[in-house]
Design a protein around this nucleic acid. Structure first.
Length: 568
RNA sequence: UGGGGAUUAGUCUAGUGGUAAGACGCCUGACUCUGGAUCAGGUAUCACAGGUUCGAAUCCUGUAUCCCCAGCCA
C-alpha cells in the first residue's frame, strides 16, 4: 500500500512537474501542502493556449489530496484591464469544469500589503526611488552583451527614498517622474536583475480599486509576493518567464517571506491558427472575423459557440502532456478528442447540405409514412425517433454521380443503394436542365425493403442519408474551415514578410441553407447533433425559436474523400 | 563563450546505463444500415561527432540547430 499522506488521488500523469510535486510531498516539503494558481491578467479573452495552463494548475489542485488551485487575477496594470474580461475569464474556467471554491483572489487586493513590503525593501536598502526617465533607464540598463551603469540615484539614502516613495503614493508627482527600483546588480548577465522597476506612477482608474492608488506594482514584484501571500507552493508559468525566476526568488528572499517555487513549462501552440493576443485582436478589430467568439477563433468562447465540448479540450490537454520543449500540436489531435467525445453523446439526425431531388416513381403520390431511426448507435439509452418519408426526397448531391469512378458506391444510374433507416432504391432515370446539369433523379424503391433490408438478403454497398421533401425544414447552416490553411501562419508570415492576415483562408466560412428533418426545429442554442455522414453540428445563439441556425463543429472523418483524392 | 532553455517517428509525450513505449496522423486489412464508430496489423534506433562501458536515448567532451531575454506590459 502507498503511504497515505503523500499518496496522490487517482492516476496522476507522469510529467516533470507532477514528478516534482510528488517528490516534494514525499519529502514533506511545504508541510505536504500543494497549492497552485491560475493567474491571468484581465485584459483579454482566454484561448485554447490558456486551457493548458488551466488544466495543469487546476488539475494538480484536484489530483493531490488536500491540494487546491487559486483563481487569481494579476490586475496590476489598470490601463489595459477591464471587468468585462474578469467576467469572461471566470465563465470560461467554469465552463471547462474547474472550481476555485472560495479561493478567488486579485493582486489588487494586496496593494496595501505590497506597498508595506516595498517600504521594508527601501528601509533595508534593497530598493530606491529613481528619477531617471524611461529612456534614461533603458540607456543605463546596457545591452545583452554589455553591462549596465548605475543610476545616479542608486545610493540615495533610504530615508530620502522612503519620503519620495510616500509622496509618490500621495500623488505628488506626475506619471513617469519617479519609479521604485530594486537594488540588485547592474552588471548582471541577466538583464532582469539590473535594478528592475518595482513600482511606477500611473494616474489611472483601476477597475477594482478605482482611484485609491496612483502607483502600481510591476508584474515580477506583485506576482512573487502574491504567490507568497497566498502560500502558493508551486507557481507554474510558461517558459518565457524562466529568466525572471531569479527575480521572483529575490523578492521573497529580500523580504524574508514565505518561499514559493516557480516552475516553467512550454505553452500550447496549435496548427492552423494564431495564438498571440496581438494577432487575435487584429482579427477582431479589423473585422476579419465577427468577434472574439466567432467560431473560427481559438478563444474558449469561440470553441464553445462552435460546439466543442469542455471534455474534449481537457482530454487534449491531458494527451499533449507537459514538458519544457517548444512545440506545435496538430489540430488533428484536438479534433480527434472532440469526435471521440461527441460520437458517444451526440444524437444522430439527418440533414442534406447540398440537396438533389429524388423522385421515387413507384411510390404513391400524396402518401407518406414514418420510419424508425436510431438516435445513437453507441448508446441504446438514447432511444429512437420516427422520420417521415414520402415520394420526393432530397439526397446529397455528392451522393449521386452519373458517371461514377471506381470504388464509388453511392447512387448512380442503374445502381441500388439504401436510404438510411428506410428502404432500397434503384436509379432509373436522370433529369437534366438545358446546360446538362442533373436537376433531378428518378428512382424506384423496393416495397419489400421497408426498414432497410430486402427479404431476399441481397446487399448494397452504399447507404445514404435523405430528407423527405414534403416534410423538410430549411435552416441556415454555417460551415467552418480552418481560418488559416497554412499549419503555421505566424511563422509563414514572418518568413515571407507577409502580413499574417493575407494568409487567411478565404473559404473559412460558407453559409448554406440545408434541408433537415423536421424534429430539428426544436433545437435550442448549444444543442449538439451528429448529422449522419456529415459531421457534428451545434445550434448557435443566433437561433430563433423554432428556427435554429447551426454551426458545423467539425466534419466526420471522410475516407471516401481521401480515396477519391488519391484516384485523381 | 552576454545570459537562460531545448533537441526521441509527420505531431505530441514516456523512457534517467541493459538493448526504444503510448497517443494522434498516415498506410493495410476486417467488419458495418453512417465510406462514421469498432477491431487487427504496419509506420524512429533517440540532432551530429567523438569518448567511457560487456552494454548508452540515458554518463563525459565537442559541434550544430531552434526558442526566450535589453516595457515605467504580463
Amino acid at each position: 500500500m502507498s503511504d497515505s499522506q503523500s499518496a496522490p488521488t487517482g492516476d496522476i500523469p507522469a510529467d516533470f512537474i507532477r514528478s516534482i510535486i510528488t517528490e516534494d510531498r514525499a519529502a514533506g516539503a511545504y508541510d505536504g501542502r500543494v497549492v497552485t494558481r491560475f493567474p491571468p491578467e484581465p485584459n483579454g479573452y482566454l484561448h485554447i493556449g490558456h486551457a493548458k495552463s488551466i488544466c495543469l494548475n487546476f488539475g494538480v489542485g484536484e489530483q493531490y489530496t488536500g491540494a487546491r488551485c487559486h483563481m487569481r487575477f494579476d490586475d496590476t496594470n489598470p490601463t489595459r484591464e477591464d471587468i468585462e474580461y474578469v467576467e469572461s475569464i471566470l465563465a470560461d474556467v467554469k465552463w471547462l469544469g474547474f472550481d476555485w471554491d472560495e479561493h478567488l483572489y486579485y493582486a489588487s487586493d494586496y496593494f496595501e500589503q505590497l506597498y508595506e513590503y516595498a517600504e521594508q525593501l527601501i528601509r533595508d536598502g534593497n530598493a530606491y526611488v529613481d528619477s531617471l526617465t524611461a529612456d534614461e533607464i533603458r540607456d543605463y540598463r546596457g545591452t545583452l552583451t554589455e553591462p549596465g551603469r548605475e543610476s545616479p540615484d542608486r545610493n540615495r539614502p533610504s530615508e530620502e527614498s522612503l519620503d519620495l516613495f510616500r509622496r509618490m503614493r500621495a500623488g505628488e508627482f506626475e506619471d513617469g517622474e519617479y519609479v521604485l527600483r530594486a537594488k540588485i546588480d547592474m552588471a548582471s548577465p541577466n538583464v532582469n536583475m539590473r535594478d528592475p522597476v518595482l513600482y511606477r506612477i500611473r494616474h489611472a482608474e483601476h477597475h477594482r480599486t478605482g482611484d485609491d492608488w496612483c502607483i502600481y506594482p510591476m508584474y515580477d514584484y506583485a506576482h512573487s509576493l502574491s504567490d507568497s501571500i497566498e502560500g502558493i507552493t508551486h507557481s507554474l508559468c510558461t517558459l518565457e518567464f524562466e529568466d525572471h525566476r531569479p527575480l521572483y526568488d529575490w523578492c521573497q528572499e529580500a523580504l524574508g517571506i514565505y518561499r514559493s517555487r516557480q516552475i516553467e513549462f512550454a505553452r500550447l501552440n496549435l496548427t492552423h491558427t494564431v495564438m498571440s493576443k496581438r494577432m487575435l485582436r487584429r482579427l477582431v478589430e479589423d473585422e476579419y472575423v465577427m468577434g472574439w467568439d466567432d467560431p473560427r477563433m481559438p478563444t474558449l468562447s469561440a470553441l464553445r459557440r462552435r460546439g466543442y465540448t469542455p471534455e474534449s479540450i481537457r482530454d487534449m490537454c491531458e494527451r499533449v502532456g507537459v514538458a519544457r520543449r517548444n512545440t506545435v500540436t496538430e489540430l488533428a489531435l484536438l479534433e480527434h478528442c472532440l469526435r471521440e467525445d461527441l460520437n458517444q453523446r451526440a444524437p444522430r439526425r439527418m440533414a442534406v447540405l447540398n440537396p438533389l431531388k429524388v423522385v421515387i416513381t413507384n411510390y404513391p403520390e400524396g402518401e407518406s409514412e414514418e420510419f424508425r431511426a436510431v438516435n445513437n448507435p453507441e448508446d441504446d439509452s438514447m432511444g429512437t425517433r420516427s422520420v417521415p418519408f414520402s415520394r420526393e426526397i432530397y439526397i446529397e448531391r455528392d451522393d449521386f454521380m452519373e458517371d461514377p469512378p471506381r470504388r464509388f458506391y453511392r447512387l448512380a444510374p442503374g445502381r441500388e443503394v439504401r436510404l438510411r433507416y428506410a428502404c432500397l432504391i434503384t436509379c432509373t432515370d436522370v433529369v437534366k436542365d438545358v446546360d446538362g446539369n442533373v436537376v433531378e433523379v428518378h428512382c424506384t424503391y423496393d416495397p419489400e425493403s421497408r426498414g432497410g433490408n430486402a427479404p431476399d438478403g441481397r446487399r448494397v454497398q452504399g447507404t445514404i442519408h435523405w430528407v423527405s421533401a414534403a416534410h423538410a425544414k430549411k435552416f441556415e447552416i454555417r460551415l467552418y474551415d480552418n481560418l488559416f490553411t497554412d499549419p503555421d501562419p505566424a511563422g509563414a508570415a514572418s518568413e515571407s514578410g507577409d502580413d499574417f492576415v493575407d494568409l487567411i483562408n478565404a473559404d473559412s466560412l460558407e453559409v448554406v441553407t440545408a434541408m433537415v428533418e423536421p424534429g430539428l426545429a426544436a433545437a435550442e442554442p448549444g444543442d449538439r447533433f451528429q448529422f449522419e455522414r456529415l459531421g457534428y453540428f451545434c445550434a448557435d445563439p443566433d437561433s430563433k425559436a423554432g428556427v435554429p441556425v447551426f454551426n458545423r463543429t467539425t466534419t466526420l472523418r471522410d475516407s471516401w474523400a481521401r480515396i477519391s483524392r488519391r484516384q485523381e
